[in-house]
Simulated assay, not measured.
Amino acid sequence: MSAGEFYYDQKVLENHLISLVPFNQDLHVSKLIHEVNTHDLLKYIPFPPFESEEEFIKNFWEPVLNAPGECLYAIIDKATAKESGESNAFAGTMALTSTSKENAVTEIGILIFPAFQRTHVATNAAGLLLQYTLDPPSAGGLGLRRVEWKCHSENAASRRAALRMGFEFEGIARWHRICPVGVSVEALEKRNGTKGEQRGRHTAIFSITWDEWDEKRPKIVALMERKY
């Protein structure tokens, strides 16, 4: 079972190393929950907490992913799938979020499970999604004008990854989002006694735009083809 209708065709994206397939609740949610709660993967990510499939559906799947501006992919590592079966090759998730069809803008979000970090997985997953979003329709892409990468301002690893993938740093949006779990900046309760205030974060904002894509694309393809 997949989420609601995305603005665009959520087709399978793949190369010889990985596949991005539409996230299927029946196939992928239990592994995602296990990884998130075993490895504290939401430290820097503004997801609502979920410890069970029911909480995932209630707090994230139904209220967020059923919107037409949202879609979620499961990352499948082909090498692992060939060796031990696809059930063990689910390596993380990639998302297109806050998509505006009118403005031709989207944001990508990435979550890689620890066993697949510092491998070819993240680079190829992000590269495939960039090709899909920024390549023109004549080349099989969506031809969007802007793709964003946003992360917690204190998430140094994510900021390095954005720059490595060719994104341009635009600045820090202060108090940009709440951060239900994990690291957060000082809460209002410490400042003025407000009770029950959601913790917040400052967000580092990066982007790649259509008018620089032709220059950046070969560099990203070269990264994807590197041996790890």
Score class of each variant (00 low, 15 high):
54 E>F: 04
141 G>R: 00
130 L>C: 15
182 G>W: 11
69 G>T: 10
117 Q>T: 13
83 E>M: 08
181 V>Q: 12
185 V>Y: 05
72 L>H: 04
31 K>L: 12
186 E>C: 13
113 F>D: 00
161 A>I: 11
40 D>R: 13
206 F>P: 07
26 D>G: 12
55 E>L: 12
160 R>H: 14
30 S>R: 14
201 R>I: 04
124 N>E: 02
177 R>A: 09
178 I>V: 12
130 L>F: 05
124 N>C: 07
194 T>C: 03
159 R>H: 01
188 L>N: 07
128 L>Y: 02
155 N>A: 03
217 R>H: 08
127 G>T: 01
142 L>V: 05
88 N>I: 08
46 P>L: 03
20 L>H: 07
228 Y>N: 12
59 N>C: 15
26 D>A: 13
83 E>K: 15
104 A>S: 11
221 V>C: 03
123 T>P: 01
212 E>Y: 07
48 P>W: 02
103 N>D: 13
50 F>E: 01
114 P>W: 01
102 E>Y: 13
125 A>C: 11
90 F>N: 11
15 N>T: 12
55 E>A: 14
67 A>V: 05
58 K>H: 09
132 Y>H: 08
58 K>T: 09
119 T>R: 03
178 I>P: 11
34 H>R: 14
72 L>K: 06
69 G>D: 08
185 V>K: 15
111 L>C: 03
81 A>K: 09
112 I>P: 07
